[in-house]
Nucleic acid binder design. Structure first.
Lengths: 339, 339
DNA sequence: AAGGGGTGTCGAAGCGCTTCGACTGGGGTA
DNA sequence: TACCCCAGTCGAAGCGCTTCGACACCCCTT
């Protein structure tokens, strides 16, 4: 393995000069610089990551903590992860993958051993035991999602309150007076997961504000559960004509269930989903939806982290505004009683 | 940050003694050992990863290269990734996440900079440009999937040839005489992806062996594509009564399409999927399927890698035998012409 | 009683890099 | 002409750990 000393010898300079050529931290004459660069290429030199990290106190590695939990929608997570890795590489960093099941100890481990320079933590709960740890850690971190007490933290998330409200507004604007939120599995609510709770809040508040009925129910992933949940919902509230769905894996079966129950989408039942665009577009009919800008959020998380690493300031909480795209699954409600 | 010297001072021993206590590479008296361990706890000492890596020439980090490609089924990949991380942790290793879009250069980068000790490469194509690089790298690697020329490599994969054959045998045993393979999107075949090609091979060979009709067609992910593909298939071959599906995301819509076309599953059309068990079980009816043992393969990959790191020998190619679970989507074919 | 072989511990070297301070020489200034 | 400054380069000192050889010391053997 070729070292910096080999390069220095080959170029006829000191090792430190090679280092400065590579880092650009001191001015080097054009002549020397080019000679060194030629040697680097000729020898195929790659700086040793550990040596560099040891000397510079920087590993150039970010930790990414991904959830492994029930009810999480995997493709969206993968989009986050991909965005994080890609953006990290843009800033010359690599990504160490941690699973949430290592818990707070895992964070301490990688942080205190200087394995990583900073952390990105996904799927943060409202009362997350990792949050106090993150606060004490001697390195910056960014949360995707945000806890109840976000003091001193940097958090980025889609504004799910607004997302829930947007869905209600869209349906209310179309004349719907009775709406339901078909949510994530109940385990997700019980965990006090931020995005689920906040969507619910936005949904309930907006329904109240608009003076429409807004009921909500969690929903498990199996076909039978979906069928049962919807049947129950429609028998309890037969006048419901608008559905908000925040539960990506049930979308396909749900359309089935509605069909089976004789409810046409959108004629008998308007439907807005909170899901990735490609999922919405793949359905028949294509779904009106609030999309999850996973890539944008992942990018943003890494950019903030890099900024913090460089000593810059970033906002404590960045809420990405949701956008609703109307597609074929929503239409105006024709009120038969006044028609 | 507390260093090994701090621990040594606190315990009244030399730094090297602390090191030996921690690594167990030399015998240490019970007395000293316990004293050192107490100091380690008291001070909350964590060895610095870079220093350790530099001195020992081992980073204790594995690279995991995941695909980011069209047509890959994300949840299965995630299962692989999760298994790899979890198993790596069991062996006291961490996992660096690389995306395939860094290509062969990415492998060289992390390997030659000693960022990682070994690599796990997923989604290997029959003619994969990363394979020659992997051969030359000064560290062990394990491929999930395997290329045409696997000489000198360690590969682990589900035996997809057998998987394809199993599906045919299952259907043929039930009396079906005309079968179709509904495969991955054509882009996956064009890339010469191993699992798709091999399943096809197994399917075709088994059909021939069993003397049944076996036609195959790729299938894109959109609903319209599925509808069109199936219509075309059934109009070209109206006597098809058995379907093998290797394309996880289309499974839900496909069941829809069949219903819409008036084909009941399994009465009019038996269906075997090659997919994760939970996907098969979530459908109505539950699908007979060959499962993808992602966890087992991921575990195995890491175990082989660790064995290689320790100088042990591992088989060049490990083919995990597929298992077919019969569920509600297949039933005996009643031949109306002889009935 | 002398010698030999373990066992347990220490000190120092070194892993490959960054970075600091110091040095040199040439060009500008006074 | 003397001086200063700056650009450009070097050497050395670490960064925090592992590991090798050496060294005591004790117990056992003969």
């Amino acid at each position: 393995m070729v070292t910096i000393a080999d390069v220095a010898r080959h170029a006829g300079v000191a090792a430190s000069t090679v280092s400065y050529v590579l880092s650009g931290k001191r001015t080097i004459s054009t002549d020397t610089r080019e000679r060194v660069q030629r040697s680097v290429h000729a020898l195929g030199y790659r700086p040793n990551a550990s040596a560099r990290a040891l000397a510079s106190q920087r590993s150039n590695v970010l930790a990414l903590v991904i959830p492994l939990r029930t009810g999480m929608h995997v493709p969206v997570m993968m989009q986050f992860a991909t965005a994080v890795v890609t953006t990290a590489r843009r800033f010359d960093h690599d990504v160490l993958l941690l699973t949430a099941d290592e818990g707070p100890d895992g964070l301490e481990r990688v942080a205190q051993s200087s394995l990583v320079d900073a952390l990105v933590v996904m799927d943060v709960e409202l009362h997350d035991e990792r949050v106090p740890v993150l606060r004490e850690l001697p390195m910056p971190s960014v949360l995707i999602g945000y806890p109840d007490d976000a003091d001193g933290l940097t958090c980025i998330d889609l504004d799910f309150v607004a997302a829930g409200a947007h869905c209600v507004d869209h349906l209310a604007d179309l004349g719907h007076r009775s709406l339901a939120l078909l949510g994530t599995p109940s385990a997700v609510y019980e965990r006090q997961t931020g995005f689920a709770q906040r969507t619910l809040t936005g949904f309930v508040e907006a329904a109240e504000r608009r003076g429409v009925l807004g009921v909500e129910t969690p929903c498990e992933h199996t076909f039978d559960a979906i069928l049962h949940t919807v049947e129950q919902l429609l028998s309890d509230h037969p006048d419901i004509t608008g559905l908000v769905v925040q539960n990506e894996p049930i979308i396909g079966p749900l359309l089935d269930v509605l069909r089976r129950l004789g409810r046409r989408v959108p004629e008998d039942m308007s439907l807005v989903a909170i899901c990735a665009d490609d999922v919405a577009e793949r359905q028949v009919p294509q779904l009106s939806s609030v999309s999850i800008p996973a890539e944008r959020i992942g990018d943003q998380a890494v950019e903030s982290l890099i900024t913090k690493l460089e000593g810059g300031d970033v906002p404590g909480l960045t809420l990405v505004p949701p956008t609703l795209t109307a597609r074929g699954s929503t239409c105006p409600h024709v009120d038969l009683t006044t028609a």
